[in-house]
């Protein structure tokens, strides 16, 4: 019997360090499958950010740079300007992209920089232990909003994808989720499309992916899936917010 395991060639065989049930592993796989699908693994440079996915360079079987906190879109810009024929993407969490890195993401999008951004939104700072993120929901209990996030103290969550959709620069902006098989299939198609637009030199694409953080939400992986469905999706509706690449 001749067995050929189907692990994407854009992933290494290193086991993820992520907690049980964390969505990062699914998203890594979807990104790797998209690179395999487009056959661009050997022509891609990825940019890891700061947060739980800081070690992404251990998992993606491609050339990678690790960026300072929030600056991945600027680093990706530098790479893309030197290598305009390469496929360049950043992989960023919500603390990295939507808090410390808001200037970099807004301006990379506004420039229409021909890069793809994978934006993982799990409504908390995972790596540092579950503090409030810019995307934490009103009422959400985190280690820095122990009584739940309230507007007078901590403001409202930021809807990055909607915000970027007001800009002329982006060609593709979508929000997907990876909490159920059907949503994962949609997410895979959306990520594929984002990379396809970059390959076709159409410009800036970003896919926001709603993700679970069972450890810091203090829920089991299955409870976390339900929490995402019941709490995040109503506030962060799924769909394509901009698609002018067709």
């Amino acid at each position: 019997m001749n067995a050929v395991p189907k692990i994407p060639s854009s992933l290494t065989d290193k086991q993820f360090h992520y907690c049980p049930g964390c969505s990062h592993g699914i998203i890594h796989r979807l990104v790797a499958e998209a690179l395999d699908f487009h056959n661009v693994r050997e022509n891609t440079v990825g940019v890891a950010s700061v947060g739980c996915s800081v070690l992404a360079y251990n998992y993606f079987n491609i050339d990678m740079q690790q960026a300072a906190h929030g600056r991945a879109p600027a680093v990706a810009t530098g790479i893309k300007r030197v290598l305009p024929g390469s496929i360049v993407f950043s992989y960023q969490g919500d603390g990295d992209l939507a808090s410390i890195g808001t200037a970099e993401i807004v301006h990379a999008a506004a420039r229409g920089e021909n890069i793809t951004v994978i934006f993982v939104n799990n409504a908390c700072y995972g790596m540092t232990g579950g503090q409030m993120a810019p995307t934490s929901l009103i009422g959400q209990v985190t280690s820095t909003t122990p009584k739940g996030r309230t507007q007078p103290e901590a403001g409202y969550p930021i809807k990055v994808t909607e915000m970027l959709s007001t800009l002329d620069g982006p060609v593709y902006l979508s929000r997907v989720s990876v909490h159920k098989p059907a949503q994962i299939r949609k997410a895979a198609r959306s990520i594929q499309k984002a990379f396809r637009y970059q390959i076709e030199n159409k410009g800036f694409s970003l896919v926001e992916i709603l993700a679970t953080c069972p450890t810091n939400w203090k829920l089991t992986p299955l409870e976390a899936v339900k929490w995402l469905e019941n709490n995040m999706i109503p506030k962060y509706p799924l769909g394509e917010f901009k698609d002018v690449g067709v």
């Binding site: 440079v45 940019v47 740079q65 960026a67 300072a68 600056r71 600027a74 680093v75 990706a76 810009t77 530098g78 790479i79 893309k80 300007r81 030197v82 290598l83 390469s86 200037a103 970099e104 301006h107």
Partner: peptide, 13 residues
């Protein structure tokens, strides 16, 4: 900050 991070990416490439 963005400028020097572009330098990092570009030099790395």
């Amino acid at each position: 900050i963005a400028a020097i991070n572009m330098v990092y990416g570009a030099a790395g490439a």
